[in-house]
Structure formats: structure tokens, C-alpha cells
Simulated assay, not measured.
Amino acid sequence: MEAFAEYLEGIDHPEHRVRMEEVLRWTAETFPNLTAKIAWNQPMFTDHGTFIIGFSTAKHHLAVAPENAGIDRFSEEIVQAGYDHTKQLVRFPWDRPLDFSLLKKMIEFNIADKADCSTFWRK
């Protein structure tokens, strides 16, 4: 969590900071082989130098970015869980519980799908 300390300190809304810290800690503990880092001013996790998942804050939601392939793969489940998404991110509203099982599936998918990926982003 050291990699994210400065980022977390910069979140003005205390409840949003607590939620983001919870999500980042959960990700680090659930996937200890991933590397935690800040890039493009947002917390993210990588595996063997390739992007796995990124997080950012917005006024009304925590944004989770599993790349377009992750969105495509889980689009139906995202909508069924009551969340909305764009091509690049899922919006988890601050005022609702976060579906950690869905987040886990997205991360596991990216780890497996990018196991042989030698670039940061999918091509």
C-alpha cells in the first residue's frame, strides 16, 4: 500500500478515500503476485510488466478499468449487477457496496488472458 499512500492522501472526500483504500488493499492481498504502482496519476496493478487493472475516483463513483477486453467479457454481468460501464471502465457508485466477486473475475480474466502478453496494453 506504500505505492498508493500519496494518491490516497490526495482524495478529499474521506469516505471515498476509505473505499479506495479498501479496494486497493483487497486487490493487493487477493493477488499478491501483482505489482502495485501509480501511472497516469492513478493506482494500478501490473503483472510481468503488463497492465491488469486500474482504479480512479470520480464525483459519483469509483472507476475500475480492466481494459476493453475485460469490459467486453463481463459486460452482461456488469449490467446484471446494476453497474454501468463505458468501453474502458466500470462505474461502481460510492453509495453502493462494491461487488468484489465481479472485480475478482475481471482481474483473474486479465491475468490469464495476458499471461503471454509482452506489451503493457493489449494490441
Rank of each mutant, 00 (worst) to 15 (best):
E2Q: 13
Y7K: 07
G10N: 15
D12S: 14
D12R: 09
D12G: 14
H13N: 14
E15L: 08
H16N: 13
V18Y: 06
R19S: 13
R19F: 07
R19E: 15
M20S: 12
E21P: 01
E21A: 15
E22I: 00
V23M: 15
L24F: 11
L24Y: 09
R25T: 15
T27M: 05
A28H: 12
E29Y: 02
T30R: 15
T30V: 06
T30I: 03
F31V: 08
P32V: 08
L34T: 07
L34E: 08
A36T: 09
K37R: 13
W40V: 06
Q42C: 09
P43S: 12
P43F: 08
P43L: 12
M44P: 03
M44G: 14
F45H: 10
F45E: 12
T46Y: 02
T46N: 05
T46C: 09
H48Y: 08
H48W: 04
H48K: 15
H48I: 01
G49N: 12
F51V: 02
I52M: 11
I53H: 11
T57R: 03
A58K: 06
A58P: 04
A58F: 02
K59G: 05
K59R: 14
L62P: 01
E67K: 05
G70L: 03
I71H: 07
D72Y: 00
D72V: 04
R73P: 01
F74R: 06
E77V: 00
I78W: 13
I78S: 13
I78K: 12
G82L: 09
G82Y: 11
Y83S: 11
Y83I: 09
D84V: 05
H85K: 14
H85I: 01
T86P: 05
K87M: 09
K87G: 11
V90A: 08
V90Q: 07
V90I: 15
R91W: 03
R91K: 14
R91D: 06
F92S: 04
W94C: 06
W94A: 07
D95C: 02
R96H: 07
R96K: 13
P97M: 10
L98M: 10
L98K: 03
L98H: 04
D99Y: 02
S101Y: 10
S101L: 09
L102S: 07
L102N: 07
L103H: 03
K104A: 10
K104G: 05
M106K: 07
E108W: 00
F109H: 10
F109S: 06
N110D: 05
I111Q: 11
I111F: 04
A112C: 00
D113W: 11
D116Y: 05
C117T: 12
C117L: 15
S118Q: 15
F120C: 11
W121C: 00
K123F: 00
K123I: 00
K123N: 12
